[in-house]
Design a protein around this nucleic acid. Structure first.
Lengths: 154, 154
DNA sequence: ATTGCAATGTTATAACATAACATATATTAT
DNA sequence: ATAATATATGTTATGTTATAACATTGCAAT
């Protein structure tokens, strides 16, 4: 599988799914939160908080400040709609929220496109490793950096 | 296995090992680099760059600046003597440098002690996941946060 | 001795993130 | 409908993490 950016319809579906989840769970998907989510998912690549801030400023044509963005991000992460990539201080949308709270990633260093890789065998293996060490997992960061098929062929 | 801090002899051995590796590989283990390495390994817990900086200032009793510490850290990471935990912006010593360049971690949120967990089956599983996605790995961040045996029993 | 190079010193600032408090908006209970 | 409450946002300031850029030092090779 090569790493492709999401189609317009996938994006729409993703946004719609988040709206539905918020509606049915009575989560306040406010204008800003929605804007931030759309900016993140439409970006295809991991995006940084201050890049989001710039876009928010352009959209709304008024001053905005870091806390506004970070709060929206917090909300989106808490509810599993967005993930943070710690290795590059960037944020990505989640395309199957609620399916899992943990998410593993492949991140291409060249084209910057990312992809989730949360297969169960990997999850199991990590879980076994934790058990073997008498360790109770609360959250896992797995970020695999390298080159995707397209970029490693160039 | 519970997460214990390293004994004095383990620390000495670790420092000695690094010295030997540098000697045989003609790597310049300068005074500062050595100081930073010792601070990191002796700390038992992940340590932050500015905490290292404070300690360096105390040791040498003269002004030091962030680049001094970050450069030393870069050297130590490049040569596999130290790892960065991206999820908590902290640094830890590696107790088997050169055995592998990648390192996976269990990090206890309560006592902050960390432990490497680089078993081969986990390595294999990650490798397979990458292959399955036609992805060439250059480096992997795996940080499992949670509670160690001791802390989860308290 | 001079050149070249690796490491360190120094100043400044970039990049990332949150504390604290004020204000506004939505929700709920009366 | 209104007051009380909770939730969200605005705003200022600052804390935290990390690097750019350039000067200086020390040492090795010619």
């Amino acid at each position: 599988m090569s790493m492709k950016s999401k189609s317009t319809s996938e994006l729409k579906a993703s946004i719609h799914r988040v709206e539905e989840i918020c509606k049915s769970n009575k989560l306040g998907l406010t204008e800003i939160r929605k804007q931030v989510f759309e900016i993140i998912v439409k970006n295809n690549k991991p995006i940084k908080a201050y890049e989001i801030l710039d876009k928010i400023r352009n959209i709304n044509n008024k001053p905005s400040h870091p806390p506004t963005v970070y709060r929206a991000i917090d909300f989106l992460i808490e509810n599993g709609f967005v993930h943070k990539l710690n290795s590059i201080n960037s944020f990505v949308g989640c395309f199957h929220p609620k399916a899992h709270k943990e998410c593993y990633f492949l991140i291409c260093k060249k084209c910057n496109i990312y992809q989730e890789c949360c297969d169960d065998s990997l999850k199991d293996r990590i879980s076994k490793t934790a058990i073997h060490n008498n360790f109770v997992i609360s959250n896992t960061t797995l970020e695999i950096e390298g080159h995707c098929l397209d970029c490693s062929q160039k």
